[in-house]
């Protein structure tokens, strides 16, 4: 059996706090359900309710679409802001740029001002990136026999992946790729082993989702040495 998160049966909840299975879901419960924050008896009861209540299921599906739209939009805007900051362009709307040009002209002064804004934006963006205040170390393990429990990491945090490579062929460096569930490359890097381990700081903060971490020898890029599952919540 896989180590699924719902295997706990809510030993901590009592009959007095038990929610009725007949009761329809509140907005907060729908949010908690979609964010996988429910556990125990409450989770059981809500999942049972959703098996039969089509009205609540309609609401959950509608919210899920909305959540998906916000996530995609937020990820896209984050990427745009990051790209603009790295390129030295100020992350300001087009109309503001026009206003700038109108008052300050297109001479060195405006470029200096814009450049400074770009530097400030870069600094602010890096320091204020939400949720990336701490690093989290995730050990990727190879499980033999049975279903592995995929390591989980916290979304929005810088991740350091560690891999034990003692059983692998020796190489001066190894390449690690992180791909999402659709096979899109999210991050890539080459790491030299140290004392039989690889320690790699993923250069990108990952959003919640399921990912695969692929390990290769850069000199033999077609050969996949290992692949690990990684769940980010």
């Amino acid at each position: 059996m896989t180590g699924l998160s719902w295997e706990d049966d809510g030993a901590g909840e009592s009959l007095m706090t038990r929610r009725s299975v007949q009761q329809c879901l509140s907005s907060k419960e729908i949010e908690d359900f979609l964010f996988d924050r429910l556990s125990g008896v409450t989770r059981e009861v809500i999942e049972e309710h959703l098996l039969v209540c089509h009205k609540c299921l309609d609401r959950v599906e509608e919210e899920e679409k909305y959540f998906g739209a916000v996530r995609k939009a937020a990820a896209r805007i984050q990427q745009e802001e990051f790209t603009a900051a790295v390129a030295g362009k100020p992350p300001v709307p087009g109309k503001l740029r026009e206003w700038f040009g109108k008052f300050f002209g297109k001479g060195p002064a405006v470029w200096a001002t814009v450049g400074l804004a770009g530097v400030l934006a870069t600094v602010v963006l890096v320091q204020r990136q939400p949720g990336a205040k701490t690093e989290v170390e995730v050990a990727l393990r190879l499980e033999r026999g049975g279903a592995p429990e995929e390591p989980a990491a916290a979304a929005g945090r810088t991740m350091i992946l560690t891999v034990d490579i003692q059983e692998l062929p020796d190489a001066p460096v190894y390449r690690l790729d992180v791909v999402d569930g659709a096979g899109r490359l999210m991050a890539s890097g080459e790491v030299a082993p140290q004392t039989g381990r690889l320690r790699w700081k993923v250069p990108r903060v990952l959003a919640a989702g399921a990912y695969w971490v692929r390990l290769r020898n850069p000199e033999e890029p077609l050969e996949l040495l290992r692949e690990y599952g990684l769940v980010v919540r």
Binding site: V70, A74, I77, Q78, P93, P130, A155, R233
Partner: peptide, 19 residues
């Protein structure tokens, strides 16, 4: 999201994207 302030956008990003 582009039509709201950066702060409001950050709040929504934290809630929906970073959960």
């Amino acid at each position: 999201m582009r039509g709201i302030s950066r702060r409001d956008r950050e709040i929504l990003t934290r809630f929906y994207l970073f959960e």
